[in-house]
Simulated scan of single mutants.
Amino acid sequence: MGEGKTSVIVPMLALSLCSSSSSLVRIIVLKSLFPTNYQSVRYKLGGLLNRRVLSFSCRRDMNFSESQANQIFNRLQYGLSQRDVVLTSPEDILSFDLLTIDKCRRNEFDVGRSMLSTQRWIKTYVRDILDESDEILHVKYQLIYSIGGQKQVDGGLERWRTIQSVLNLVKKHATSIATDFSDDISYKVSERKSSFPEFRLLNHRPFPELCKRIAKDWLNQKTFRQLDEELILQFILDTSVPIACLKDRFPYNIIQLFLIMRGLLSSEVLFVTLKKRYRVNFGVNPNPKFNRLMAVPFRAKDVAAENTEFGHPDVGLVLTQISYYYSGLSDLQLRQCFDRLSQNENDPEVIYN
């Protein structure tokens, strides 16, 4: 940071690579830094050297027609001949790739064929310069387009309830784990007994012990035979134990619970979520235009990543519940809950009396 890579080295490298008309230079920058980098590159290459800087953006709501897709292709070819420079972000590149697949899935083959031709041409003639390459090449940079009708996650309501049970057990063991691993956990006791404590793992060391305590307590809440409990415990805490050992002993819906617990504990979904900082790495987007009640990734303190959600459903569910444990419900959300209850209950006296 601050050593001139973006402001000095990137423009020099782009100018060197685009000196020949055999390759089109594409500078890939982080989405959050795009406006700043665009102004910088445009000033240095456009203002001083009269090189045209093209910005390439793509989103799912851009419904390209065949003529528009051809215009993009022709403009890139013209940019190659004029030695222009393209500035884009990883999200825009991935979005264009996914839009191509989506067009073919919708049987819009003419548009899809044109976009696919553009992709093939880009792979042949474009040379990429990655600014902040450690961030851009990080595994977290993924883009997922949901398709088809909306469905419940596998397990339905039981997945939500199981996650709530696990978080309740995290709350139960938070104090003892924080005492045993004081250097590896950020912990603050909640002011009210009913509140969820500020509990965050700083590294992996305390997580195996936390998993063992959660798994044992969760099994104690169930009514399995003692002989089966040992097998279930091994299955939940060890990903190498095959599922075949459970198929003849338990029905499918019970095995689903074991798989949910296994994902949270031994597959370390819970570890990933408990490492994140509330309102810094995740939270509920307060923007009313977003129209989502699920937790989303945050780019910085109280700055939600726009049009972004967690790719793993269990991560999203866990962080959503933690978000509301910390923030509580607003007056509007509370009224919505009561309205929903009143709509679904035809005879409240039968339930509450």
Rank of each mutant, 00 (worst) to 15 (best):
P90H: 08
V139S: 11
I27G: 01
K289D: 05
D102N: 12
T100N: 07
L15P: 00
L329F: 15
N353V: 09
K193G: 01
Q77M: 05
Y125F: 08
D97E: 12
F199R: 05
Q226K: 15
F64R: 00
S195H: 15
K276W: 00
F235R: 01
H138T: 06
K44F: 14
T118C: 11
R292H: 05
L167K: 07
W218L: 11
G283A: 04
T179M: 09
T223Y: 06
A69M: 08
F199Q: 05
I255V: 08
L54Q: 05
A295G: 07
R52E: 07
G149W: 04
D331M: 10
N63P: 00
G328D: 03
Q226S: 10
L227T: 13
S176V: 12
N50T: 03
P286Q: 07
Q321I: 15
G328W: 13
Y141K: 15
I129P: 04
G46T: 02
N285R: 06
L87M: 11
I136L: 04
K5V: 14
I254N: 00
C211T: 03
S267P: 00
L45I: 12
S95M: 09
F73H: 10
D102F: 01
F258M: 14
Y38K: 12
D228C: 09
L201T: 08
I255L: 07
E349C: 02
F282M: 02
N291F: 02
P35V: 12
D331N: 11
V280H: 08
A69H: 10
E66Q: 04
L270C: 09
T273Q: 06
S32V: 12
D228T: 06
L13A: 15
K301D: 13
L227A: 13
R120N: 13
N203G: 05
D84R: 10
L157I: 13
G148A: 10
H312N: 13
Q119V: 05
K222I: 02
S186I: 08
K222H: 10
H312V: 13
Q150A: 11
P297Y: 00
Y324V: 00
S23D: 02
Q343S: 09
S266I: 01
W121L: 14
I236K: 02
T175M: 12
L130C: 03
H312C: 13
L24F: 06
N291Q: 12
N281C: 13
L317A: 13
S267M: 10
R200H: 04
F224T: 00
K188S: 14
L80T: 04
T118H: 03
S23Y: 03
D331G: 02
L210F: 01
D131F: 11
Y325I: 02
R277L: 05
F34H: 08
W218P: 08
R105V: 12
L157A: 10
F271L: 09
C58I: 03
I177M: 14
C245T: 12
L202G: 02
V241Q: 05
M12H: 09
Q333R: 07
F310L: 01
F109H: 14
S55T: 11
H204S: 14
S194Y: 12
K275F: 06
I255K: 04
L274E: 07
D183A: 11
V241N: 04
I243P: 00
E345H: 05
E268K: 09
L137I: 02
L334N: 10
F298D: 09
